[in-house]
Simulated scan of single mutants.
Amino acid sequence: MTDATSGGTPPEAGGAKAGGAKGPDELRRQIEQTRHQLGDTVEQLAAKADVKGRARARAADLRDKAGAMTVQLRSSAVHAGQAVQSELRRPSSRPMLAAGAAGAAAVVAAEMWMRRHEGR
């Protein structure tokens, strides 16, 4: 409850505002805490305003991700190459691989021929 005659200050607060300082030492502590909070806020705002710095950080993140993706793709390519080599060593798979390669070459050749003759 608030006392209308004392400007809205609760009587149990002893005349001090709720959450206010209870003495000079408490006031100094609150001022120091507020200064730290203000400093943190200013640093955060400065970081948001640093567009070049943020762009550099984002570019570094993307470079790291691209590097990791490259390593992963190279590893996958090595595994695929090893799988193909092991299949080529098996005599029963050679005719199937040859037929597949011939079919793929025919598709590529047909596609190239169609693109060349498309404009005529």
Rank of each mutant, 00 (worst) to 15 (best):
R63E: 12
A109Y: 02
R35E: 14
G103E: 05
D25Q: 11
R29K: 09
R90S: 12
A83K: 03
R28W: 10
E26D: 13
R90L: 09
R90T: 11
A46C: 03
G103Y: 08
G53S: 01
R120G: 15
H36Q: 14
H79A: 15
G7F: 00
A66H: 05
K52W: 04
H36C: 13
K48W: 00
L73T: 06
G100Y: 11
G20V: 10
A110D: 02
G119R: 09
G7K: 00
R58K: 15
D40C: 00
V51E: 03
D40V: 00
A18H: 15
G119P: 02
T2D: 11
A57Q: 08
Q72F: 11
R29Y: 06
L45C: 14
Q44V: 00
V42R: 05
G20I: 07
Q37W: 04
T34V: 15
L45D: 13
K52G: 04
E32A: 04
G23A: 08
K52I: 05
D25P: 05
R89M: 06
E26Y: 08
R56A: 09
A47K: 02
A16W: 11
R58E: 14
I31T: 09
A59I: 14
G7H: 00
Q30K: 12
T2K: 13
S6C: 07
Q37N: 10
D50C: 01
A104P: 02
G81P: 02
D64T: 06
A68R: 07
D3N: 08
A110G: 03
K65S: 03
L62N: 15
E12L: 10
L97G: 04
L73W: 07
G8W: 00
T41S: 03
V78C: 07
M96A: 10
K48T: 00
A59K: 11
S75R: 12
G67E: 02
A21H: 01
T70S: 15
K17C: 04
R29E: 08
V78H: 09
T9Y: 01
P91Y: 01
A77P: 10
L88M: 11
Q72L: 12
A80Q: 06
E87D: 07
A66L: 09
Q30E: 06
T34R: 14
V84T: 07
A57K: 07
A101Y: 11
S76T: 10
A55Q: 06
A47T: 02
E87V: 05
R28P: 05
A13K: 08
L27F: 15
S6N: 10
A101K: 10
A59Y: 09
T5Y: 11
K65M: 05
V51T: 09
